[in-house]
């Protein structure tokens, strides 16, 4: 075998050996547990913080009267956290600062209730924002927790 080939084979052998060592040491620990990915990743994703809390187990405990009103009204299918934002901090430490009291402008209500032909009539009551008491704020007449009162 010519000396060139011998030397080159040595170099390539060395290169492949280095690659093998790198692959051995750099492959993450839980690799290939379930497939071609880090098995630990599943756990890491699963361990992320839950921010939307269970309404029945938390909100209703303290705010029982509002909760009762709410449950009997037209808005009962809406989650508290849709308007008040996520409650995980408030549950830990109930203060006014860590829960959102929404600024109930006309636009806030109209996000759902603005007249739009795409909205199915049987699922949502809609108002023509231009004609329906256009200068008033909705909550002057409607209680967001029980809109038909």
């Amino acid at each position: 075998m010519p000396i060139q080939v011998k030397r080159l084979l040595m170099v390539f052998g060395l290169f492949i050996a280095i690659m093998a060592v790198l692959i051995y040491f750099l492959t993450p620990e839980s690799w290939g547990e379930f497939g071609h990915y880090r098995g630990l990743a599943l756990k890491e994703i699963a361990d992320k913080e839950v921010k939307h809390v269970d309404v029945n187990e938390t909100c209703a405990m303290c705010h029982d009267s509002i909760s009762a009103t709410f449950a009997s009204g037209e808005h009962k299918s809406i989650n508290c956290q849709n308007c008040h934002n996520v409650g995980y901090k408030h549950v830990e430490d109930p203060t006014k600062e860590n829960i959102v009291k929404p600024e109930v402008t006309r636009d806030f209500c109209l996000r759902c209730h603005a007249k739009n032909p795409a909205r199915p009539e049987n699922y949502i009551k809609q108002v023509d924002a231009i004609e329906h008491n256009k200068d008033k704020v909705c909550i002057n007449c409607h209680n967001p927790h029980k809109p038909w009162e």
Partner: peptide, 17 residues
Amino acid sequence: EKCIGCASCARACKNEN
């Protein structure tokens, strides 16, 4: 047929994740 286009889903997702 049930979607009212309120985008509560989009809002909740941004808040949660």
